[in-house]
């Protein structure tokens, strides 16, 4: 377990050796069901997750949790506090919780998430939960790393227009209205239903219309447990539906495409930048932009021509 945790850390830090280790692990990946949990800050993602972990442990699932919290853009430090809600599983050897800091990634995840999912997969986890940072409307990278996306909403966060906006509302496979004992719940439910009714039936991939699940007060164990069970069953149903309609493949295709792009970025762009920084060229180019001697596009184009030996 410590080896796995250290490997994730080396990948977060961008160690070359750790990346080569992935070569040996990669053939053994692809077994786990990856579930993404996303929603605004304070929506109750970690608490829901804690309930889900408990319910999956009851049926003997081996669980991995990746919890992402933001890195400070100013100091590079981070406070990772998602474990607080999951501490009762800390001593359970069937639950591996790992916190990740975003380290500047903007899509609601950390760049190391894809790799960390693979590592937990190879560890034999049946289900891997990925909890995003508290999201706004646009942090949708989670779809590229999970089979099932759960979007957690809470009542009182805005009117009907918020619901038809693009981005986060489009990526849900399952909607959860959390804290559903609070005022505004039925209104939110109505609006969500209307949003789903408006959508063309063809826009639901393989006929899966995202269900809406209401989860009430987490401090009342009985209704909370019942709602969590419903959510857990729905997550299974969604996976079955993906399998039956052979949609799993298109999701995996999307994941593979993302991973390839990210690896290209690391191996090509980062290498180029490292070279430019150490040769001082990057600083020169920045000064040219500042002094209005050139513009970013011309500089980038010139660089591309030089590096790719292409002349337009």
């Amino acid at each position: 377990m410590r080896t796995a945790s250290r490997l994730i850390r080396c990948l977060e830090d961008g160690e070359e050796d750790a990346r080569s280790a992935m070569k040996y692990l990669f053939p053994f990946t692809g077994r786990a069901h990856v579930v993404g949990i996303t929603g605004s800050p304070g929506a109750g993602k970690s608490t829901l997750l804690d309930g889900l972990v408990e319910s999956r442990r009851k049926i003997g699932n081996n669980i991995g949790v990746l919890a992402v919290d933001p890195t400070s853009p100013f100091t590079g430090g981070a406070i990772l506090g998602d474990r607080i809600r999951m501490q009762r599983h800390a001593e359970d050897p069937g639950v591996f919780v790992r916190s990740l800091a975003t380290r500047g990634a903007l899509g609601g995840l950390s760049k190391a998430v894809g790799d960390a999912v693979h590592i937990m997969d190879v560890m034999g986890k049946d289900m891997i939960f990925v909890e995003t940072v508290g999201t706004g409307q646009q942090e949708i990278d989670i779809i590229n790393h999970s089979h099932t996306v759960v979007v957690v909403l809470i009542p009182g966060m805005g009117d009907g227009i918020q619901a038809i906006k693009a981005g986060i509302m489009e990526i849900a496979d399952i909607f959860v209205i959390n804290k559903a004992d609070r005022p505004g719940t039925s209104k939110l439910h109505r609006e969500l239903k209307a949003l789903l009714d408006l959508a063309a039936p063809t826009s639901f991939h393989n006929g899966w219309r995202p269900p809406i699940i209401q989860v009430e007060d987490a401090f009342k164990p009985e209704p909370f447990g019942k709602s969590i069970q419903e959510l857990s069953d729905t997550i299974d149903k969604h996976y079955q539906s993906l399998q039956e309609h052979e949609c799993l493949r298109s999701r995996l295709h999307r994941k593979a495409e993302t991973e390839l792009k990210e690896a290209m970025q690391v191996c090509i762009m980062d290498t180029i930048f490292e070279g430019l920084i150490s040769s001082g060229e990057e600083e020169m180019m920045i000064n040219e932009i500042l002094n209005k001697k050139s513009d970013p596009y011309s500089l980038a184009k010139g660089m591309a021509e030089r590096l790719l030996k292409k002349h337009h």
Partner: peptide
């Protein structure tokens, strides 16, 4: 303060048993 110093801080809150803390420290490396 550690966040401001650029460290990544895993904060686990109150009422922890030594077992929970040790297990968490290993999982989080």
């Amino acid at each position: 303060c550690f966040r401001d110093a650029g460290f990544e801080v895993i904060y686990t809150g109150c009422h922890q048993t030594p077992e929970q803390i040790a297990a968490g420290a290993l999982q989080e490396d």
